[in-house]
Measured scan of single mutants.
Amino acid sequence: SKDTIRINGIDIDVKDLHEEWKRLVEEALKRGDEELAIELLERALKE
C-alpha cells in the first residue's frame, strides 16, 4: 500500500491511516467517487 493517495490531483499523506480506511478510500477512488473518498478521509483523520 502506498503512503499517499491522489484525490483531485492532490497527493494526501495517508501513511498514518489505518489500513482499513486506506482500502475504503482506494475503493471509492476506483469507482470514481472522489466525494466519498474525501468524506472517508476526513472521517479517518478524525479518529
Rank of each mutant, 00 (worst) to 15 (best):
L41A: 04
K30W: 08
R6E: 04
R23N: 13
D33Q: 09
D33K: 05
E26F: 11
A37C: 03
L36T: 08
L24T: 02
T4S: 09
A44M: 11
E39T: 12
A44S: 05
S1D: 12
H18M: 09
K30V: 12
N8I: 04
V25Q: 00
K15Y: 09
A37S: 01
G32Y: 03
E35N: 15
S1T: 13
E19N: 05
R31A: 14
G9K: 04
K2V: 13
D33S: 05
K22Y: 08
L41T: 04
D3E: 11
L41Q: 00
S1M: 13
I38Y: 13
E34P: 12
L45Q: 11
K46Q: 11
D33Y: 06
A44K: 02
E35C: 15
N8M: 09
R31G: 07
E20D: 15
K46D: 06
V14Y: 10
V14E: 02
A28W: 02
K30C: 02
L17C: 05
D13Y: 10
E26Q: 09
E19Y: 09
G32L: 04
V25M: 12
I10T: 09
N8G: 14
A37H: 00
N8P: 02
R6Q: 09
R43F: 04
L45N: 11
R23F: 07
K15M: 07
E27A: 10
K2S: 13
R31M: 11
L36E: 06
R31Y: 08
L29G: 00
D3M: 01
G9E: 05
L40I: 13
I12Q: 04
A37N: 00
E19F: 08
K46T: 08
E35R: 14
L24D: 04
S1F: 10
T4Q: 09
R43S: 07
S1K: 11
R6L: 09
K15P: 04
R31D: 08
E39C: 13
L24N: 02
E27P: 00
H18Q: 09
K22H: 10
L41E: 00
L36H: 09
D13V: 12
I5W: 01
L17N: 01
V25K: 00
I38V: 11
I12F: 15
I12G: 01
A28I: 03
D11A: 09
N8E: 04
R31S: 08
I38P: 00
L40F: 06
L36Q: 09
I12Y: 15
D11P: 06
L17W: 08
L41N: 00
E39Q: 11
K15H: 12
L24V: 05
D11E: 08
N8H: 14
I7W: 02
D11M: 09
T4R: 10
K46F: 03
K15W: 05
L41K: 01
V25W: 05
E19H: 09
K15Q: 11
S1Y: 07
K2W: 12
E27V: 03
V14C: 14
D11H: 09
E27Y: 01
E39D: 06
L36F: 09
L41P: 00
I12H: 14
E34K: 13
K2L: 13
R31C: 09
A44G: 14
I5Y: 01
K15C: 05
K30Y: 09
K22G: 12
D11W: 06
R6K: 11
K30G: 13
H18A: 15
E20W: 05
A37K: 00
E35I: 14
D3Q: 08
L29E: 00
E26H: 10
L29V: 09
D3R: 06
T4N: 08
I7F: 03
I12V: 11
V25D: 00
L29A: 04
G32Q: 04
A44R: 01
K22S: 07
D13E: 08
E27Q: 09
D13T: 09
L24C: 07
I5C: 01
K22E: 08
E34T: 15
I12N: 02
R6W: 03
A37T: 02
R6S: 10
A44N: 03
E27N: 05
A28Y: 05
I38D: 02
